[in-house]
Design a protein around this nucleic acid. Structure first.
Length: 256
DNA sequence: GCGACAG
DNA sequence: ATCTTGTCGC
């Protein structure tokens, strides 16, 4: 593959998946085993100026909707967003979540005008049976640094962290630390943080804390979530519901 | 063989 | 993930 600018690379991937998408668990496992070797666990090269939150929701039968919210960093204000809906290409099977959620996510990423410096996934990075959770998978496919922040555990052992925000304990799997169990908010259930790609354990912890300054989940994930499940903040004007949406694209932005 | 099991 | 109101607690 020749090197081109990042946005073109993303757009290319979005048009067609890199390879025939697996249909069976066996094929999907083979893909994971093969691609896991491409994961780079290293210090984050540059602090991102833009971070993308990704969330996927299920619609009425068979449809999967991906939402991407791009926020500036570290301010965490919304810059732009994109949506994509596709028929489910894979069933939900623990350990193979990425094969179900990634296709529409790539399509949505391809609609972005600006290239994020970090992808934040609602799921695991390397804290996975084969070290290749959705954050790692998406990171390798896009070539972008990625982080996984999951609401629950997939694999690994850990000690319950303290109840204060910032308290954390190592998530250990097969005698190796694969992430953290991090309390992002005092007195609330912790989240499971792990690096996806082009990021290390230290960076995953720092970013998770910076991305979730107020609530349990990262601001990126929260923003993407209410896009994927159509929530509206409290409106002050009950009358003006005249909001036009053109096939899943909103907000203006200044391209890269 | 019996549990565990991201979203 | 999603179906769903009220309720308990800081």
């Amino acid at each position: 593959m020749a090197y081109v600018d990042g946005m073109s690379e993303l757009a290319r991937n979005a048009l067609s998946l890199p390879e025939p998408w697996p249909t069976t668990i066996e094929d999907a496992r083979a893909v994971q085993e093969r691609m896991r070797g491409l994961v780079r666990l290293e210090p984050l090269a540059d602090l991102p100026k833009l971070v993308a939150g990704i969330d996927v929701g299920l619609l009425q039968d068979g449809l999967v909707r991906a939402a991407v919210a791009v926020l500036d960093f570290p301010a965490l204000t919304l810059v732009e967003s994109a949506l994509a809906i596709q028929p489910a290409a894979f069933p939900y099977v623990p350990g193979f979540l990425s094969f179900r959620e990634i296709p529409p996510v790539l399509e949505a990423l391809g609609k972005l005008n600006a290239l994020p410096g970090l992808l934040v996934c609602d799921g695991q990075g390397i804290a996975h049976p084969r070290g290749f959770g959705i954050a790692s998978h998406l990171g390798v496919l896009t070539g972008l640094p990625s982080l996984g922040v999951a609401k629950s555990r997939l694999v690994g052992r850990y000690a319950e962290p303290g109840s204060e925000r910032g308290s954390r304990s190592p998530l250990v799997y097969r005698s190796r630390q694969v992430g953290w169990v991090l309390r992002t908010r005092t007195g609330v259930k912790p989240v499971f943080v792990s690096p996806g790609h082009r990021l290390d354990l230290y960076g995953s912890l720092e970013l998770a804390m910076a991305l979730a300054p107020k609530y349990r989940l990262p601001e990126t994930t929260r923003q993407a979530h209410n896009l994927a499940s159509g929530h509206r903040p409290r409106s002050i004007k009950p009358e003006s519901d005249t909001e036009e949406v053109d096939k899943g694209r909103r907000h203006s932005n200044s391209g890269v």
